[in-house]
Simulated scan of single mutants.
Amino acid sequence: MGLFTKDIKTMEDMFLHGLQDIYYAEKQITKALPKMIEQATNRDLSAGLRAHLEETEKQIERLEKVFEKLGKTPKGVDCPAIDGLIKEADQTAAEVDDKSVLDAAIVGNAQAVEHYEIARYGTLIAWAEELGHDDVVRFLTTNLNEEKATNTKLNTIALRKGVNKKAVA
Score class of each variant (00 low, 15 high):
Q28Y: 04
A105I: 04
W127S: 14
I37E: 09
Q59Y: 03
P34R: 05
K58A: 10
D44V: 04
A126M: 12
N42L: 01
I29A: 02
H133Y: 15
G2Q: 11
R138E: 15
L19G: 01
A89V: 02
V96Q: 01
D83V: 02
V96S: 03
T5F: 06
N151G: 05
K58T: 11
V96T: 10
I8S: 08
R50G: 06
K75G: 03
E61T: 14
S46M: 14
H115I: 03
K148Q: 14
A104V: 00
A47G: 05
A112Q: 14
T156G: 00
N42G: 01
K9C: 05
A110Q: 02
G18H: 08
E146C: 06
L140F: 11
D90A: 10
K35F: 05
Y24K: 06
R43S: 11
A128H: 10
D7L: 07
N143C: 15
D13F: 12
L154E: 05
A25G: 05
E88K: 13
D44C: 00
E38I: 01
K27S: 06
A149T: 12
G84L: 10
A158T: 02
H115G: 06
Y116R: 15
L19M: 11
K35D: 08
A32N: 07
E114K: 05
Q20A: 09
A119P: 06
A94P: 00
V168W: 00
A104H: 00
A32I: 04
V101D: 00
H17Y: 15
E129C: 11
I86R: 05
L33F: 10
L70I: 13
M1D: 05
H52F: 03
P80L: 12
L140T: 04
R138W: 10
A32T: 01
L19D: 06
K69E: 13
A40P: 03
A112E: 05
L3Y: 15
D21P: 01
A81E: 13
E130M: 15
D21H: 07
L49Y: 08
E12F: 11
L144T: 05
T41M: 02
E130D: 14
S100E: 08
D21V: 07
T30D: 07
L131G: 09
K35A: 13
G48W: 02
T5E: 14
G122E: 08
Y23E: 03
D103Q: 09
E55P: 01
D90T: 09
D78L: 07
K9E: 15
R138D: 13
V163Q: 07
R138M: 14
N109R: 09
G84W: 06
K58C: 07
K161H: 05
D7S: 10
E129W: 07
G132D: 13
Y121P: 02
E54D: 15
A32H: 06
A149D: 09
N151D: 12
D83A: 13
L53Y: 03
C79L: 12
A32D: 05
Y24D: 08
K65A: 12
V66Q: 12
K161W: 04
R160Y: 01
R138S: 11
H115E: 09
E129K: 15
S100N: 13
